[in-house]
Design a protein around this nucleic acid. Structure first.
Lengths: 120, 120
DNA sequence: CATAGTACTTGACATTTCGAAGCGATTCAA
DNA sequence: TTGAATCGCTTCGAAATGTCAAGTACTATG
């Protein structure tokens, strides 16, 4: 079934891990330290964040720069591959602003709106 | 913090739920029944699939059409909002083929490649 | 010297997902 | 006629995953 390598499948697999997209989005605004990133992402606990960050580094989306071990000071920044995810975030942004505006709560679903908004 | 409604955040929150992107991708190829979809998505167990589908319907991305209750026959198809996710999938596709492939036949683009040894 | 900040780790707990089995019914092959 | 397969799910316990609170080793600030 999955004999051949499908990059899209792989990408989805990794993008759908919890917090990944949020982390990338935050990092897209600039490099950050661990706690700073944690605050900026909002709601991700350190254990998970650390794990995700490891993964992102491993995949080559994020670059981890240890400036000093003690006192601890680290910087996480996107690699070229990571910054390229901007286009994915843009697509999500564009979709979200078009279809996710009034809804987002359970129950209230906006059917289809033919809004002509080309934000972004 | 989360006082103002951020559509992108909401979108990420929902897109990152396990299997959602896979389901949408599969549905982008055409409407399907439950088991058919399950096979096409590959690896998602029925409980999770049912839950995701409910949610997708609730959000307004998928339309569930019950053709007959007994014998059971149902069709899941994307709404306009769902089909619009094509652009997100396209962005992912484009990113993935550029950065997630063992630079075999698509050279010149990946300046720095990190190991893609592990199964992501 | 006490407080706050850095980058995490650990271990206990909660939530999410999984795997397998099953249900009522129909359709098809033997 | 019997049995197997298919359909769209649901249920259950178990496994994987994520979360919370606290703690570590240390410095800079007040």
């Amino acid at each position: 079934m999955d004999n051949e390598f499908c990059p899209v499948h792989e990408a989805i697999q990794f993008l759908q891990e919890k917090w990944v997209l949020h982390i990338v989005r935050s990092l897209l605004e600039g490099p950050r330290g661990f706690n700073e990133l944690s605050r900026s992402v909002g709601g991700c606990n350190p254990a998970t964040l650390a794990q995700r960050l490891d993964r992102l580094v491993e995949i080559g989306v994020v670059d981890k720069e240890v400036q000093s071990v003690m006192p601890p000071r680290t910087l996480y920044r996107l690699t070229a591959a990571g910054q390229s995810l901007q286009q994915v975030l843009n697509a999500i942004d564009s979709w979200a602003t078009q279809y996710l505006r009034p809804a987002a709560d359970r129950g209230a679903v906006c059917d289809q709106q033919h809004a002509t908004s080309d934000s972004l």
